[in-house]
Amino acid sequence: MTRPAPDAGHWVDELQARGIAASALPLIDIAPTEIPSEALSKARCACATPGHYRAVMFVSGNAVSHFFAPGVRLAPGTRAWSPGPGTARTLQAAGVPTAQIDGPRPDATQFDSEALWPEVRAQIQSGDRVLLVRGGSGASGSGREWLAEQLRRAGATLEFVAVYERHAPQLAPTALALAREAAHDGTLWLFSSSEAISNLQRALPGTDWSQARALATHPRIAAAAQQAGFGHVQQCRPSLSEVAASIESAHEH
């Protein structure tokens, strides 16, 4: 499990509860961004002002966690956009009413910006303002850039605030040993980010991944794994039940 901690640990617990042997090897570190405090304060204040934003797009659960603080809220008429159910659950935990949250349909092929847009595009009118709460350090993502372009075409004005940073972790010797073994011992790598694959390649330069197996939760991530040289790449939707089913199916074969 290569997701950032503590999310990786949560997934490991869930998979182990289903009888799947899982280990955490976080390949992305998350930390608060080094932005001027007034920039975030201004965005939080604007979000609480009725009518200021048509919607606020949170790119991930980390975006939600680092944006909200005690006393921070969204104005009742401001929509909260989520790319998937995990982010939606974090929004609910932050106190955003379920009825105020928009996201892809539960049966969507993928949980991403492309799946979100058909559900929210009717909300946008020319001149509307939309805030995109995201990570920094190059964490924008091609899907979010695509969504930004759709919003601009619809006449919306976009504003951005980066509330966290994503970094390549410094892997401990035990983690590096685990990664080297998993390159050839039949371990199934679960990737939910292309960035994790890039960080893995930088941590183990020159490694032959032709015997490695990967499970990717998005076509772009699967393509990145193939480009990195993974010999077997499988794809599934990013829900826990489908990830678990894909893991069990992979081990059967």
Rank of each mutant, 00 (worst) to 15 (best):
G135Y: 02
L178H: 12
H52K: 06
S82P: 00
R180S: 02
R73W: 11
S60K: 05
S137G: 14
A168S: 14
V130F: 06
R105G: 07
A93P: 12
A179H: 04
A172H: 08
R79H: 08
L190A: 03
A88N: 02
G186D: 13
E181N: 12
A63W: 00
Q150M: 05
V163K: 08
A43E: 06
E119W: 09
R153M: 14
V130T: 06
Y53L: 01
L91C: 03
Y164Q: 06
A139E: 13
D128E: 05
G136S: 12
R79Y: 09
P76E: 08
Q100E: 09
A80V: 07
A88T: 12
P173G: 13
P70R: 02
V133D: 05
W189Q: 00
G86C: 11
R89I: 12
G143D: 12
Q110M: 08
R152G: 02
A75D: 04
P106C: 00
L190D: 02
A93I: 09
E165R: 15
G135A: 09
H66T: 03
M57N: 15
A182W: 07
R89Q: 14
A175M: 05
I101R: 00
A168M: 04
G136E: 03
G51P: 15
L74A: 00
A172T: 08
M57R: 13
A182F: 08
E149M: 11
P106T: 04
S60D: 08
D185Q: 10
L178Q: 15
A55W: 03
G143V: 07
P83V: 01
A88Y: 00
G155C: 06
P50W: 05
P106A: 02
R180D: 02
P169W: 06
R121H: 13
L151I: 01
S126F: 14
P97A: 13
T78D: 01
R153N: 13
W189N: 00
R89Y: 09
T187H: 14
E114W: 08
I124W: 12
P173R: 11
T187W: 13
L176R: 07
F67M: 03
A179E: 03
A93H: 11
G95T: 11
T174E: 15
M57G: 13
L131V: 05
S65M: 11
A168Y: 01
A154T: 11
V130L: 14
W189F: 00
A156S: 06
D107G: 01
E145I: 07
A48N: 07
V59D: 10
A122T: 13
Q110T: 07
P106N: 04
L158N: 05
D107Q: 05
S60M: 07
K42W: 13
A93N: 10
P169N: 07
Q92L: 13
R180A: 07
K42D: 15
L74V: 05
V72W: 00
A75N: 04
G61W: 02
P106V: 04
L131A: 06
T187A: 09
S140P: 15
G86P: 09
